[in-house]
Design a protein around this nucleic acid. Structure first.
Lengths: 259, 259
DNA sequence: TTTCGTCGGATTGTCGGACAATGGATTTGA
DNA sequence: TCAAATCCATTGTCCGACAATCCGACGAAA
């Protein structure tokens, strides 16, 4: 793609940057984005109507619309029921989904995923132990109760496992950690179902680990929390290998179907 | 925004999901996205011309264009010099930038940032110790040499620090970890400059920590790597507090200017 | 043979205008 | 006072058009 700049006839140094004439629709998007990033328009406030933007930017409505679409995708701009434009807060889930997709497209391996998940999981549990409220603990216990009843149904258990880890993430009350952890979680989770289907002692072990998690959180015992987080994830890895899969294999696209 | 579904005349249960008439431009975007995610079009391959898409989808060109803009923003679709459409690999840097922006818009605190950075930093160093190649080690040493020469210039040192951690990330050869760590790094980095300007023993301490990092990597000594990663980040925190800032304060928008 | 103009076709960026569908506001009717 | 009918603003989609640009080809010149 750089063929043009990368072909100086002889040893001539490539002296010039490629010229870039930013199209109007992108200028529109960038202008609006700047206003939001700088905080001059705050989340929840209305951006004008398309007609207003047309007159402000002095371009055609089609151009404005293309610019807006650019921002709409990232969540910086939302539309309400009447389709009017508002400044939005990019939602974690959306971003995490995109990141996990990017990871798959880059063909990262399960080993990378496992290696990265472990420390983030440990940190999350530690924070959760420190800051969990009685409310979230109750939610965790309720989740465990439901898991008990669903022990025979792998896909249901996998779903509850995902919910469980989501709750632990919430309990950590660290949004940076949550956002960092969630893309990996989105990729680990679907494989859990596969593992549970093939390794029949998986579900009880998972349930037991969850119980110990919550127990550690209730007793504010960081060491126990870390221990069980580690065991839980190691179980995942072992189950993965026991199911006949190779850790150094790229993550399968299949695990993205759930759009 | 849920006003329509939330108004059952009496106590009648809300039995029906709200019908969602997905606009055509979004259907176009989703259709293309699905093809890419599923791997039926691979990165580097051309998506058709706008005219082709028009005839395939049976909608107007304006609609196709709006749909494409949605994807363009996420990097799934790129344009080359001739503005033709290609399937692209979403670039880490782009995604990380968006994530860090989202974090700022959500007004996360420096404490959250610090707490999340520490474990990820430790894991990164550990992986780097394990897998660094002579090449990247050489690059790290070269970075240190440049840092030595720039000791008097806080903003230059901050820039080199960012580069250093980028190199360590590369050395870790774990892309999941890298992607998880980078948004935080993008927010930690700009504050380093501020700290270095106000705490004059900051720069030498930073340099020393970097030296010990590389030393640990060269000797494949995980313990030392972890130790110095921890000290380095703790230095950052202490410097932050010594500069008179409060860890529980939301991250300032200012640190996003560098688009 | 290689390099340089030039030309034509293809494609994108932008524009202007148009209309149906929809939501919100307003007025009307009971 | 409240519900129904009406109006108006706005969006989603379409159509057609044109300039700017890129690509490839074809010759002309060195």
């Amino acid at each position: 793609m750089e063929s043009r700049t990368a072909r100086p006839p002889s040893g001539a140094p490539s002296r010039f940057r490629r010229v870039a004439a930013t199209p109007a629709y992108r200028q529109v998007a960038e202008a609006i984005e700047r206003e939001i990033i700088a905080g001059r328009i705050r989340p929840g406030e209305p951006i004008g109507t398309e007609a207003q933007l047309v007159s402000q930017f002095g371009v055609n409505r089609s151009t404005v619309r293309e610019g807006i679409r650019l921002l709409e995708h990232s969540g910086l701009v939302r539309r309400d029921s009447s389709r009017r434009l508002w400044v939005g807060l990019p939602h974690y889930g959306r971003l995490a989904l995109r990141m996990s997709r990017a990871l798959v497209l880059h063909e990262v391996t399960f080993r990378e995923l496992y290696e990265a998940s472990l420390p983030m999981q440990l940190a999350t549990v530690e924070a959760a132990v420190e800051r969990a409220t009685p409310e979230t603990i109750a939610q965790l216990e309720e989740n465990i109760a439901r898991t008990e009843r669903a022990l025979g149904d792998p896909s249901e258990v996998a779903k509850l496992d995902a919910e469980f880890h989501g709750l632990v993430g919430k309990a950590s009350r660290n949004r940076v950690l949550q956002l960092a952890r969630e893309p990996s979680e989105l990729l680990v989770m679907p494989t859990t179902e596969m593992i549970l289907k093939r390794v029949k002692e998986g579900a009880p072990r998972l349930l037991h680990a969850h119980r110990m998690y919550v127990d550690a959180i209730r007793r504010r015992d960081k060491q126990a929390g870390r221990l069980w987080a580690r065991r839980h994830l190691e179980d995942w890895r072992k189950g993965f290998e026991r199911a006949g899969k190779d850790l150094d294999q790229p993550i399968d696209r299949i695990y993205l179907e759930s759009t």
